[in-house]
Amino acid sequence: MSEQYEFDPAAKDGVYKAIFERRDMRHFRKDSIAEDLIERLLQAAHSAPSVGLMQPWRIVRIQNTEVRKALHDVVERERVRTADAMGERSDEFMQLKVQGILDCGEVWVVTLMEQRERHVFGRRTLPDMDLASASCAIQNIWLAARAEGLGMGWVSIFDPQELSDLLSIPDGAEPIGILCLGHVDEFYDQPMLAKEGWASRGNLTDYVMSDGWEPEKAARAQQQWDKKL
């Protein structure tokens, strides 16, 4: 019986609270984060599931101020290039705050490991499962951070080669995210992009199908996506 393995009600409420109140944060205080808390977040990441137990994530803590500034510049250059590709939404995009690298207490760069091709278990037909596994590690950090009262933002606006060159990431490894972690004055009451009117969350019923692909649901979900472009 599954009941014997259930968390107690308070623990279950805490799990769902972290899931539903997690936010992609962009506004931080500059306060430092205690090392014991950093260790707990890293342990949360390292406890993530991974295909074939390959643990493809590698985490680089950015502790040098000059490297942090250079990282910020990498993101800013790509922000301008992204805006140029946005067409009529370019000006609107430039008004969005897309990162908090200079403001937060900690900056981590998450990369996929080098020589991933050697791991065949679970990846022979689905090689992107290494990315899925590393994403689970990032989500673990996110949820643990929210439970600890810390904000986290996942920044993906950067040129991978520029970032690799900056951090001497070897060939074959691949940066997939810049994580901004820090204390916040408050958490957004809804996703920031929804607050800013950039996009809204779709209806759950359009994203869940039964026994096969349902074109009508897929079309409704696509229409919701088209509104975001």
Rank of each mutant, 00 (worst) to 15 (best):
G177K: 01
A144T: 12
L167F: 04
D165L: 13
P127Y: 10
E148L: 12
L166A: 13
M129P: 00
D159W: 01
Q161D: 14
C136H: 06
S133L: 01
V155Q: 03
R124S: 14
D130S: 11
L163E: 08
A132F: 15
E148K: 14
I141P: 01
W154N: 01
A173H: 12
W142G: 02
I157M: 15
L150S: 06
M152G: 02
P170V: 07
I138F: 04
C136E: 00
P160W: 05
C136Q: 07
D128Q: 15
D130T: 03
L163C: 04
R146Q: 09
P160C: 12
P160H: 08
I138A: 02
I176R: 05
R146N: 05
A134F: 01
S156T: 15
W154I: 03
N140D: 06
R146Y: 03
E162H: 11
A173S: 14
A137T: 10
F158R: 04
P170K: 02
M129T: 11
F158Q: 02
P170Q: 09
S133H: 03
I138S: 00
I169K: 11
R146F: 08
C136D: 05
A134H: 01
Q139T: 03
S168V: 10
I176T: 05
D165R: 14
E174T: 14
L126K: 13
N140A: 12
A144K: 02
S133K: 02
L131N: 01
A144I: 04
G149I: 09
A137D: 07
W142L: 10
D128C: 13
A147E: 13
S135C: 13
D159Q: 12
Q161T: 14
L163M: 12
L143H: 07
L167Q: 03
S133I: 01
W154L: 05
L167Y: 09
D159R: 07
L131A: 09
L150W: 08
M152C: 13
L131H: 08
S156R: 15
F158K: 01
Q139D: 03
D171W: 00
S156Q: 15
D165W: 01
I157K: 07
R124Y: 14
G149M: 09
I169H: 10
L131M: 11
D159N: 14
C136S: 09
D171M: 08
G177M: 01
F158M: 03
M152F: 04
